[in-house]
């Protein structure tokens, strides 16, 4: 049978793929998880991803553009899946999820460092789950045995009949740090994987427009008392969803400066980093890698 391509939009997912006799490649984009940012489009080496603008909803709310992938161009190596902050893209080879480009050590994974000291959680506290804008945290309680309760008392932990178990779907977490800010007991530590800056020059905004606030996936933008748009720097993940819908793009000054990732030596990563941040951002990382290497060489020399 000849090579077959398919693309189906159903059940809130975009599914497309390539079917050969002995191998199947597939990609699924979960429309609920995709927030219409711009990162996958920037890193695709074949420029197979396009964003289709979506009209405003019936209530006048701005909506993020829809992602479309050209199934004939896609090579299914999963660079887009790695870079997606929301984990909306899933790549399958022979119906098994995977990221070929990571498995072959040609691309790193983004480091989502999330530390939750759930032992110290206040009893029955679910604030992190409630406040998470992406719904990736689920808190459940399991009853403690009397021995465990006594052990907790000994260690000075707050007394509670139930153990709090906090599950975080890490691949879907965009490291916005809202949970960190909202935890009443400061038990959460999150490191953003994308560093950057976002400035909204709100005197350039069209009158009464707050499209960016409508689409921001992590509620990092808010309306001030003067009815103008302001940025909450701590929460912004620099994804660019706001920039995509802004009717006056000069008002948005967005830059990404560095990206946290596992150790890697790859030309593909260098290109992706340059596309995501800037040539300057790439040079910075290369310089630090270089000095790191030089330092190791000298260290080994000293040892020898």
């Amino acid at each position: 049978m000849p090579l077959k391509h398919y693309k189906i939009e159903e059940k809130g997912k975009l599914a497309l793929g390539k079917v050969l006799y002995s191998k199947r490649f597939g990609i699924t984009v979960d429309r609920a998880l995709c927030k219409g940012c711009v990162l996958c489009k920037l890193v695709c080496p074949k420029e197979a991803i396009t964003l289709k603008p979506t009209p405003k909803s019936s209530e006048g709310k701005a909506q993020s553009p829809k992602v479309d992938i050209d199934e004939t161009k896609c090579d299914f190596h999963a660079i887009c899946a790695v870079v997606c902050p929301f984990g909306a893209i899933d790549v399958t080879v022979n119906n098994e999820s995977g990221k070929p480009v990571v498995e072959k050590e040609a691309f790193p994974i983004l480091l989502r460092e999330i530390q939750i000291d759930s032992e110290r959680c206040a009893p029955d506290c679910k604030i992190c789950e409630e406040k998470c804008p992406l719904g990736v945290i689920s808190v459940r309680f399991e009853p403690l045995t009397p021995e465990e309760m006594k052990d907790r008392e000994k260690r000075g932990l707050p007394s509670t009949p139930n153990r709090t178990i906090v599950d975080v779907k890490e691949e879907l977490c965009a490291t916005c740090r809202i949970c960190e800010a909202e935890c009443p007991n400061k038990l959460i530590q999150v490191t953003k994987f994308i560093e950057g800056s976002l400035e909204i020059k709100n005197d350039l905004c069209p009158e009464g427009c707050h499209d960016c606030i409508d689409v921001c996936p992590v509620n990092a933008l808010y309306l001030g008392e003067d009815n103008k748009v302001y940025v909450n720097d701590m929460f912004c993940i620099y994804c660019g969803a706001c920039l995509n819908v802004c009717p006056k793009p000069e008002a948005v000054e967005l830059s990404r400066t560095s990206i946290g990732h596992s150790p890697i030596k790859s030309g593909a990563w260098n290109k992706a980093l340059e596309n995501l941040t800037s040539t300057h951002g790439l040079n910075k990382e290369l310089r630090s890698k270089r000095t790191g290497k030089a330092r190791d060489v000298i260290k080994n020399l000293k040892r020898a």
Binding site: P2, L20, Y21, P100, A106
Partner: peptide
């Protein structure tokens, strides 16, 4: 070590 594969026309596009 190459991470990307594509249909092999010599194999009549049956394999990569």
């Amino acid at each position: 070590v190459c991470p990307v594969e594509y249909p092999n026309s010599w194999e009549m596009n049956l394999g990569t």
